[in-house]
Amino acid sequence: MLDCAIIGGGPAGLTAGLYATRGGLKNVVLFESGMPGGQITQSSEIENYPGFFEHTKTGMDFMDTWQEQCFHFGLKHEMKRVERVSKSGEHFAVRLENGEIVEAKSVIVCTGSTPKRAGFKGEEEYFGRGVSTCATCDGFFYKDKPVTVLGGGDTALEEAYYLSNICSEVYVVHRRDTFRAAPSTVERVKRKENIHLITDAVIEEVLGDAMGVNGVKIKDKEGRITQLDTPGLFVFVGHNVNNSVLQDEKGGFICETNDWGQVVVDLSMRTSVEGLYAAGDMRIEAPKQVVVAAGDGATAALQVISYIQEQG
């Protein structure tokens, strides 16, 4: 029987593991199907985590520094995907992909979110063949070529800037005429000569052939269509919450969630089920920042420690 099962190995899960084990829990396992690190490892820059201010470093460099520390106090890593969590009586059953069941006294779910698809024609067909959601992964394949970026938030503009240093031209398509991204990022993007902002416009269709994408059709608010012959299209239009581990066999949630599938928690990261906590990007009101996810993880782990002590 585990004292605590932590599901998901991003900043929230790693920090929860660090706090739970350093706080004295002996039997704590972090379930993550590969090397921990989370979505931030796909980010080309991180300059808003206090204490880490190295302009040339990426999200992957940043998370490298977490590994040794978070596993130092006895946190164990199981490289398995969790199918779902359920509670019977006092305890939780964590069901793994291979059908194996692991029992735990408490569970912290921090499965984060996944980049959303925008829903234009051809997106699924060409995903991985010109349509991408990871600029640090795939920008390299468009060296000195023009690319299109879809979106207007922080990720879209940060990654457009990153791509502008690799690609010949970067066309940013955004459905509004103002950007949600941080003002400093917007300014930096506007100053970059090879970034072209196309506002009040949407992507109608991505075009391609057997070799992959070779263009995009863009529609402005008057309905006029223009075509950009760019072989790469990077989509940054927000995220979907990864909440499937909290669904039962019938698809209902085992704890309270809101209309967007985010998990309802209180300020202690407690869900509506006793002993079950949620942390990081998947919870309600999540600012989706590494520093917040880490804080959530710590909060949840401290609660778990008290919970286990109360249980005796």
């Binding site: 590969g34 090397m35 979505q39 490892t41 980010s43 992957m60 990871c134 640090t136 992964c137």
Partner: peptide
């Protein structure tokens, strides 16, 4: 894979297993 790719790094231990 490539060294700069986060998801590639994530599956590296899976490939070894």
């Amino acid at each position: 894979w490539a060294p700069w790719c986060g998801p590639c790094r994530m599956i590296a231990p899976v490939i070894e297993e």
